[in-house]
Simulated assay, not measured.
Amino acid sequence: MRRHTIVLVSAAVLLAACGGSPDSGEDGGGRTPPPATGSGTAGTGGGPGGTAKPGEPRTVASGLEVPWAMAFLPGGDALVTERDSARLVRVTPSGEKTVVGRVPGVEPGGEGGLMGVAVSPGFSGDKRVYLYFTAASDNRVVRASYDGESLGSLEPLVTGIPKAGNHNGGRIEFGPDGMLYIATGDAGDSRLSQDKDSLGGKILRVTPDGKAAPGNPFGNLVWTYGHRNVQGLAWDEEGRMYATEFGQNRFDEINRIEKGRNYGWPEVEGTGGREGFTDPLLTWTTDEASPSGLAYAGGSLWAAALRGERLWQVPLDDGEAARPTARFGSGYGRLRAVAQAPDGSVWFSTSNEDGRGSPAPDDDRILRVPLG
């Protein structure tokens, strides 16, 4: 594995910038970065004491079609979305796959399709699941009942999220506060990110019924703004929130998400140190990451890298990022979804069937990583 030099600046991990090039959506810029400068190395060594070390990945299920997100049911099975087929698939820890159904109204195209999935925190009683998908005129979040065999009718909760061939966001997760958080993209129109009345380029916070959550900073659905294309959300054990974000030509990011803050896009890409904008917790050059899914487990954030083709482990120390370590950088290709399973292990998915990868005969796959 190549070694990459990093610089630690005010608790951020900063890799040197690459040259500008035409934007290529989820894969960021297309040009190889110049040699980095600074001290330290990324991709080698472990994190600080107390962070878990991963074991070897084991394939749970194979033969999937662009598995975009996964969410676990109380019994330990996962609901997995397939972006392009619009299928919702149930996967057991032993690898059994069952197609729950094809979600109606999904119109896949480019980076859009059936994306996020979340299981209600009260699923044992309400039997509800939530989905984020690209429809004919927008991206939207819907809710449906799931009786263990099939989905009920879809109930639209949040509609009118801008759609495009790329930058559709798509991740949905319930936070520790019981509210639903929705990651959106700027749909290729960067002006939307700074417009607090637009749903594009934001992290939204809504009640389980899709209404503006109590305490939102602007009196609408918006929790934070100034985002380009967020596809990963996670919380640590103290309830601190983090998100992955695709950069354009220079820097991909992990941000510490706090109420009402402006994360800079399009005025700032990466660390700008400018008043009024919140700098990232951590950045990579775009060839190292293009980060999609994000999970927290064993004292670390785990970020799935598409173009970077690895799983990044980012140890946290009281909400600050320590030096990241690149895991599983060969043999798996593009990585998309990552989630902590009820047994404490980390599951991640490949995304080699998405038109940008080189599929192996058993792709796409879901793999399980034990943490020790």
Rank of each mutant, 00 (worst) to 15 (best):
M1D: 07
T5C: 10
A11T: 10
A11S: 15
A16T: 01
C18H: 01
P22R: 15
S24E: 13
P34E: 08
T37C: 05
T44S: 14
G46A: 13
P48C: 02
K53L: 12
K53V: 15
G55H: 04
G55P: 04
R58V: 09
S62Q: 14
A71E: 05
L73P: 08
L73H: 04
P74I: 06
V80Y: 11
T81S: 14
R90K: 15
E96N: 12
E96D: 12
T98Y: 01
V100L: 12
V100S: 10
G101A: 11
G101F: 06
V103D: 04
G109P: 07
G112F: 07
M115S: 05
V117E: 02
A118N: 09
P121D: 00
F123A: 06
G125Y: 09
D126R: 08
V129N: 07
Y132I: 01
T134A: 08
S145F: 04
D147R: 09
G148P: 08
G148S: 06
G152P: 09
L154D: 03
E155C: 06
I161A: 00
P162C: 05
A164Y: 09
G165T: 12
N168T: 10
F174N: 13
G175D: 04
Y181H: 14
I182A: 01
G185K: 05
G185S: 13
D186C: 07
L192W: 01
S198F: 08
G200D: 13
G200Y: 09
G201T: 00
V206Q: 06
P208Y: 09
P208G: 10
A212F: 09
G215D: 12
T224D: 09
G226Q: 07
N229E: 05
V230F: 08
V230Y: 01
Q231Y: 10
W235I: 00
T244L: 03
T244Q: 05
F246K: 03
F246I: 15
G247W: 13
Q248A: 14
Q248L: 06
E253M: 05
I257C: 05
G260R: 14
Y263I: 07
Y263Q: 03
G264R: 12
E267Y: 00
V268G: 03
R274V: 12
F277E: 03
T278C: 12
L281H: 03
T286W: 00
D287A: 11
E288V: 00
P291F: 03
L294R: 08
Y296W: 14
G298P: 05
G308M: 14
E309R: 15
W312E: 11
D318V: 01
G319Y: 02
R323G: 03
R323I: 13
P324M: 07
T325E: 08
A326M: 02
A326W: 02
R334N: 10
L335I: 14
R336L: 10
Q340I: 11
A341Q: 10
P342Q: 14
D343T: 09
S345C: 05
T350Q: 08
S351I: 13
G357I: 02
S358K: 14
P359T: 06
P359L: 12
P361I: 01
D364Q: 11
I366T: 08
R368N: 13
V369T: 01
P370E: 00
G372I: 03
